[in-house]
């Protein structure tokens, strides 16, 4: 596998639902080559977010393995996210994952600039700040750098979230229904941005969506449920 490749083998994941196990994924298999843009589709509760969270190491699989190929100072290597400790999973996410959510993407007490700076500071990659600043300007956010999230529109917030997710040049970009809360125009803008930047930077993109038009733009589509 090369950096950005994701492979899930025989993954089981169930949630405890009032004492009863509610299976979400059972024996799930997935192979995403590096740089692929994958749309994860399915009805609510089918496990789209769970799949992304498994890849990010936020939740742990009950069985199977979740492997992500990442690039670090020592070159490329396969990481079995399933086996990482909590601290190691946090380090893994910090360095190799960029995540965009539907809501609550930004830290409300940090400005636009600070939200984008956060992953750079955490990773000690301030050398990437000029690119991030250029990206923010390209996204028409150059004038809003000192603004706090509560003064931004929904579309602006998602653009900042994408800028933050890409800032530290992660190996894998995860987007959980990023357009679910936006109007058509902003949805298109955000989708253009996600797919465009992922393609330009050669990053693997896993995007969970209900939107058929967004799914059509992906190079691979996975239907859950």
């Amino acid at each position: 596998m090369s950096a950005g490749a994701v492979r899930l083998l025989g993954v089981d994941k169930a949630y405890d639902d009032g004492g009863r196990k509610h299976p979400v994924l059972a024996g799930f298999e997935l192979a995403v080559p590096a740089g692929e843009r994958v749309a994860v589709c399915g009805p609510s509760g089918s496990g789209k977010s769970t799949l992304l969270n498994l890849v990010a190491g936020i939740v742990r699989a009950d069985a199977g393995s979740v492997r992500v190929c990442v690039r670090d100072d020592n070159g490329e290597r396969d990481t079995d996210v399933h086996t990482l400790t909590q601290a190691a999973a946090a380090r893994f996410r910090r360095r190799h994952i960029g995540y965009v959510f539907q809501f609550f993407n930004l830290v409300p007490t940090l400005t636009v600039e600070e939200n984008v700076l956060l992953p750079l500071k955490l990773n000690g990659r301030m050398d990437l700040w000029p690119q991030s600043l250029d990206r923010l300007r390209t996204l028409k956010l150059g004038e809003r750098l000192r603004a706090f999230p509560d003064t931004l529109s929904g579309g602006e917030r998602q653009r900042v979230a994408i800028a933050r997710a890409l800032a530290h040049e992660p190996d894998v970009l995860l987007a959980d229904e990023p357009t679910g809360n936006l109007d058509a125009a902003n949805s298109a803008l955000v989708a253009d941005l996600l797919f465009g930047e992922a393609e330009r930077l050669g990053k693997t993109l896993l995007i969970a969506t209900h939107s058929g038009s967004i799914a059509e733009r992906a190079s691979q589509r996975i239907d859950l449920g």
Partner: peptide, 8 residues
């Protein structure tokens, strides 16, 4: 969100 960003 901070958890997702990998804060230790």
């Amino acid at each position: 969100l901070l958890d997702v960003l990998g804060l230790n």
